[in-house]
């Protein structure tokens, strides 16, 4: 069983809801990322999503686009992202790490080489925004052979048939994108999420993470009451962006926000 599946099985028993932060590898600098990952684990997160910077992040809003650009200025790449995971694994063998990015860097490296290198680095899941299940079969098969989960995004307009398709090709968890839009959009409607989850649950046994548009502890709490995991990204990256000359302050603010989310998520009324 993959590290992700094991974790989610544990959480299911205890009713624990996973908190999953997203940061872009190498933003604002390559040195920032590994210590930030450890600090987030100390703050109570369960799984870490690392963005792999790409020149053309079509599904991302301005905040994550700029994070990608900053990381690329430091020559961050898929290979160097794997080195970051490997560094992190030197002192943490427990927290699952999911890479999130676009198909072309993986394609350029080659699916076989990537699957091997990712496993060697200690990656647990891969989420490729522009690789829907129709096109993902080859990649998913290779990743699974290396004990890595291929994770798919579900959208508000995904039909039941598509949920079934992702259930068949995907593993680890499904990531429900709670709004139609790019990352960082801000019109999440929790009652819509609640309705959609009924369809999703009816078509898959996989755990469901929910993200896009979660910015504060109160929303995290509500979402944790609905799904199995809460994913937060743009709001964390905004803090990096607001403190480019003082990354320690960014780190501190991120930790505080994650702690407050952890607290509200664990204290459902």
């Amino acid at each position: 069983m993959s590290r992700l599946a094991t974790k989610f099985a544990e959480f299911k028993k205890t009713g624990h809801k996973a908190l999953i932060p997203f940061i872009t590898a190498g933003d604002p600098s390559p040195e920032f990322t590994v210590p930030m990952m450890h600090a987030m684990v100390d703050a109570g997160v369960d799984i870490i999503e690392l963005g792999v910077p790409f020149s053309d992040p079509m599904a991302d809003g301005p905040v994550i686009q700029r994070a990608s650009e900053r990381a690329l200025e430091h020559k961050m790449s898929l290979r160097r992202t794997l080195e970051i995971v490997s560094d992190f694994r030197n002192s943490n063998q427990d927290t699952p790490v999911v890479l999130m990015g676009y198909a072309n860097p993986v394609e350029a490296m080659g699916y076989e080489d990537f699957s091997q290198s990712a496993q060697a680095a200690g990656v647990d899941g891969v989420l490729t925004v522009d690789l829907p299940p129709e096109e993902a079969y080859e990649c998913a098969t290779l990743l699974n052979a290396h004990n890595i989960d291929q994770i798919f995004l579900l959208a508000p307009n995904s039909t039941n048939d598509r949920i079934k398709k992702m259930d068949a090709v995907g593993s680890g968890f499904l990531y429900y994108v709670s709004v139609k839009g790019v990352t960082g959009a801000c019109h999440l409607d929790t009652s819509d999420v609640q309705k959609k989850l009924i369809d999703i649950r009816a078509n898959t046994q996989l755990p469901v993470g929910i993200g896009f548009g979660i910015k504060d502890a109160e929303t995290a709490k509500v979402i944790a009451g609905l799904g199995d995991a809460v994913v937060v990204g743009s709001v964390l990256i905004s803090k990096i962006e607001a403190n480019l000359s003082a990354p320690d302050i960014a780190k501190q603010e991120i930790i505080e926000l994650l702690k407050s989310m952890r607290f509200t998520m664990d204290n459902q009324d």
């Binding site: 599904a59 522009d130 829907p132 096109e135 798919f152 579900l154 959208a155 307009n157």
Partner: peptide
């Protein structure tokens, strides 16, 4: 068809 899920429909 290499696009984000939201665009599939």
């Amino acid at each position: 068809l290499f696009i984000a899920e939201t665009l599939i429909p």
